[in-house]
């Protein structure tokens, strides 16, 4: 059963290999986004990017409990989810830079990164839209009699859009194999979510619709890993949809361009101390893992993502006829776009 998430990680029975892999993956996400931020500063990323720095624990805690053939539908803040689901960072970075060889051939950018080959059905530019898509994927899984699970990760702002009610109700009515994870970072863009949300919050709402719901510290990867593992097992066994509210904090602005003037610097500084990577590193160190091993994860990740960025910078623009491809079969604009 789930260990008491309030117990210090070191006191729990840790699977060190698994947690080392988590640590490594979190660093890869962090380094990818640091490189993306650099690309933004260097004006090579032109559209908006939404970094998930500080929220890597959720991407890793959730996706490491999903199989490659399980489905994930993500949000605007989806780089970490996508990497954790197994997408290739080279293709992702090329997509951010709008280059040939990007996941969407440069036609989607950061907010439409997708990799169907690893079950990643796309980031989404419309808040909460991924909830319905997840319910639909789960519905198809059920119709086809498969043992896969569909998962969506969305923000705490998304619970005020209709799909939260409609999609969760749908998943429960049809007892679908769906996991809904709310990345509760306390903010929706520049607005404190609590100021615009009535009632007791995401988990209480999910519970009211009949989904077993759980509150987890999303910055404690160990706790989240266990919670998701149990939830996914129950869902895969036919237990119907479940909900996890994962508390976290976004350590950067809402977008790379956001000066973040609405949060006290002290709050942000304090939140850095709760960074999920630091916390896991501490737990691993407490469990006897050597510091140089942990440092190597960071170094390797930065090296990998620097190379990924260099590759993307050198990649060509997509050929112009790509703009007219992949629209529709009937009425294909390559024959007549007017």
């Amino acid at each position: 059963m789930t260990a008491d998430p309030r117990a210090p990680a070191a006191a729990r029975n840790l699977d060190l290999d698994r947690l080392l892999a988590h640590h490594k993956l979190m660093w890869r996400i962090r380094a990818f986004e640091e490189a993306a931020l650099r690309a933004n500063t260097e004006k090579l990323v032109l559209g908006a990017i939404h970094p998930s720095i500080g929220q890597e624990g959720i991407a890793v805690g959730v996706c490491s409990n999903l199989r490659t053939d399980d489905i994930l539908a993500s949000t605007h803040r989806g780089h970490g989810h996508t990497l954790a689901k197994g997408a290739n960072p080279t293709a992702m970075m090329r997509e951010l830079l709008g280059r040939e060889g990007g996941t969407s051939h440069g036609k989607g950018g950061s907010m439409h990164i997708a990799d169907f080959s690893v079950g990643m059905l796309g980031a989404n530019g419309v808040v909460a839209a991924n909830i319905h898509i997840t319910a639909g994927a789960a519905h198809a899984i059920k119709l086809r009699g498969e043992d896969r699970v569909a998962c969506s990760i969305f923000g705490d702002g998304a619970i005020n859009r209709g799909p939260f009610l409609e999609g969760l109700n749908w998943a429960k009515v049809f007892e679908l194999p769906a996991l809904f994870v709310c990345e509760d970072n306390g903010y929706a863009s520049t607005t404190r979510t609590a100021d615009m949300t009535a009632g007791k919050g995401p988990a209480a709402r999910a519970e009211a619709i009949g989904l077993p719901a759980m509150e987890v510290d999303g910055n404690d990867v160990v706790a989240l890993d266990e919670a998701v593992r149990d939830a996914v097992a129950a869902i895969r066994a036919g237990g119907g949809p479940r909900f996890i509210n994962a508390k976290t904090y976004r350590l950067t602005g809402h977008t790379a361009a956001d000066p973040d003037g609405y949060r006290a610097r002290d709050d942000v500084a304090a939140a850095w101390k709760r960074c999920p990577i630091t916390r896991l590193a501490q737990a691993l160190a407490d469990a006897g893992v050597r510091g140089d091993q942990l440092a190597a994860h960071e170094r390797d990740a930065i090296e990998e993502m620097d190379a990924v960025y260099d590759d993307a910078k050198a990649a060509p623009w997509p050929p112009l006829d790509r703009a007219f491809a992949d629209v529709q079969d009937i009425g294909d604009p390559r024959k007549d776009a007017y």
Binding site: F116, L121, I131, G136, H139, R144, N169, W170
Partner: peptide, 21 residues
């Protein structure tokens, strides 16, 4: 059958269409 959730009906169809139905 479906609940009176037109957005969900359409959105679920999109997800289900992306998933082989």
């Amino acid at each position: 059958d479906a609940p009176i959730s037109e957005a969900a009906i359409m959105g679920v169809a999109v997800g289900a269409a992306l998933s082989g139905t």
